[in-house]
Write a protein that binds this DNA or RNA. Structure first.
Lengths: 343, 343
DNA sequence: ATCGTTTCCGGGAACGTTTGCACATTAACA
DNA sequence: TGTTAATGTGCAAACGTTCCCGGAAACGAT
């Protein structure tokens, strides 16, 4: 039944006061053994569950956490959310998810909305458009719990969970180089995002190590994170139409990787004969692609879990936290034939 | 700022009572024009937002809806959840998502948990294991708002949103037949699910129409909905090892379709040369598969939206609802080469 | 001057909890 | 017999709202 018993009901039924019942339920030492037993048994019998809303009001805690991501229909984020939910559920928190669709305005209003919902903390992965992180800085300075994951704000000193983007990029790029590709382009997200810069650095470092020089024309940013199909298409076409066009593309985000594959398919470009491909994605079906796709995969589920654990620890901490840590997790390079150069 | 102003604060600052402020904010006719203006302006200035938790306690409504699905990391369900969120957000509800992982026990505890959270209504897609729907019947009889989507409970008379499973299956099967396949197997979910039975009926009807007889050995149920990889693998292998093995498989669920593709790939089975494939899935990358996969696609986003609209309408209805409707939406058959017979 | 109406506003209860405090009972002690 | 301590229980406030009442002031009509 969904009309639930309250402490008042129990008190009335047992001829006790609500305070006594409350204390008995919470195992207070100042309640007699038999009274306690009486209450506990009755509560069990009628399946008493404390009203979480009343508790929230009393404790001034909503027991909910707000999540800000660009979109949920995305392999990386749906896996991360899975991780977030799994921890939150067990710890008695519920999760309110909001999507920015890579828009800074949406992100701001989402944060405001979550705050007006009185969430106890925020789990944030920035939108591609976001350059201004002052709202987070402000909240964080006021002591509001925030944990960033994946797309972190460089200038807000709070807990963060990130993948080893440099190494992931370096390894993937080096893989392409070792396979024999020499003219490697880089398709990436907005430069606002720290991950874009880190991934670029890894890419560049691999080039440097193998004495390949970096062509500025081979670097393409999609400032809307792949939400605008035309933007990606334009970038890809520009690469393909260059006089000395690239023989491989290293792609730095999940959505861009998938978009790019669609575009290449539509254009009839053969992989890896015409162009080699390696990209970040958490798709579980990259193995089934034609050709099977070489990917850099992040432990999205674990990242979601770690971020949530950290956030809840921060929320429930008795003292203000001053030591904020940045956890780094390793990526996984899964080599398939899209990155194999054919001679 | 996240410490928000309360009505009390406003009352104190303006030398009014909380009742007056509350009424002014709600535009009550019994408040003088200038008082109202004063309050409204001050509230605007300090960016007053009513505390949703206090409101919930007062109104005995949590403004949240519970969602029960088998998993979120699934193309169909992540798209549906996207639709659910989009409506709920606009209507001022938040969404609590729970996953059954196709287990009936998990489903029961999830429902109990959501109820103890005082959700105002439930959006449910049954687990593959669920045969007993009495808990929903009970709640529904008590007047608790429930809307089923996709995997509906046949014997609970409430609002439902389903795809035209019969037609989707019929069309896909007929497509395989017309392509020249004659020995078509059917890989599907547990028979507990109404959608499995409907999809089987569509499959069977197409066979009948074209005078192909149905071989019981060609029907394989995965009672755990594809959550157990070995179960799917066994089913697929049994089909392939039959004396007169099928020349095509029609697959009736998202997860099974993807699982089956992985298994066939690992076994080195060529599609469509060795076996033709068509299956239900909402994957956005089926086009990129090797070979491109013929799919039956459901309008998952819209289904999520419709279900949520219906649920909120039921929640907010003044009178008890007696006319419950079942909305049916059409599926989309996307023909690609996995279902093209090569001679 | 008295009464009824209108207009405007405040007091206080209620929603379901927790918790500081006060109180009652009993037992032990002087 | 009175004092103290220990034990067990209840009252009431608080969290932020809404809303039923009751009431004060102003006004016109009698």
């Amino acid at each position: 039944m969904f009309e639930s018993y309250t402490i008042k009901d129990i008190a009335k039924a047992l001829g006790l006061s609500t305070s006594t019942v409350s204390r008995a339920l919470n195992g207070s030492y100042e309640i007699g053994a038999e009274t306690k037993k009486l209450v506990l048994e009755y509560a069990e019998k009628v399946n008493y569950r404390p009203n979480p809303i009343a508790l929230s009001l009393k404790e001034q805690k909503s027991h909910s956490i707000g999540v800000v991501v660009c979109e949920v229909a995305n392999d990386y984020f749906s896996q991360a959310i899975n991780g977030i939910e799994s921890i939150a559920y067990n710890r008695g928190y519920h999760v309110i998810i909001t999507q920015t669709h890579e828009s800074f305005d949406r992100e701001s209003t989402n944060v405001k909305h979550l705050l007006s919902r009185h969430v106890d903390g925020l789990l944030v992965s920035l939108s591609a458009e976001t350059a201004d992180t002052s709202q987070y800085k402000y909240l964080h300075d006021k002591g509001f719990p925030i944990v960033f994951f994946d797309r972190v704000a460089a200038d807000v000193n709070t807990h963060k969970i990130i993948a080893n983007n440099f190494k992931g990029s370096f390894d993937a790029t080096e893989l392409l180089i070792k396979a024999g590709f020499t003219k490697i382009a880089h398709l990436t997200n907005s430069n606002n995002l720290l991950i874009s810069r880190e991934r670029f650095d890894g890419f560049k470092a691999a080039l440097d190590k193998h004495q390949l020089d970096f062509k500025p024309g081979y670097l393409k940013h999609c400032n809307h994170g792949g939400m605008i199909q035309d933007e990606v298409e334009l970038a890809v076409k520009e690469l393909l139409n260059m006089d000395e066009h690239p023989d491989a593309i290293f792609i730095a985000s999940d959505r861009l990787t998938i978009s790019c594959m669609h575009i290449l398919k539509r254009l009839g470009i053969k992989i890896p004969q015409d162009i080699g491909i390696a990209g970040f994605t958490n798709s579980d079906v990259a193995e089934l692609f034609d050709p099977p796709l070489t990917v850099i995969r992040q432990p999205a589920f674990q990242i979601g879990q770690m971020a949530t654990e950290m956030l809840i620890k921060t929320i429930e901490s008795k003292w203000p936290i001053e030591d904020f840590i940045t956890e780094q997790v390793e990526t996984e390079l899964i080599i398939r034939s899209s990155s194999q150069k054919l001679f």
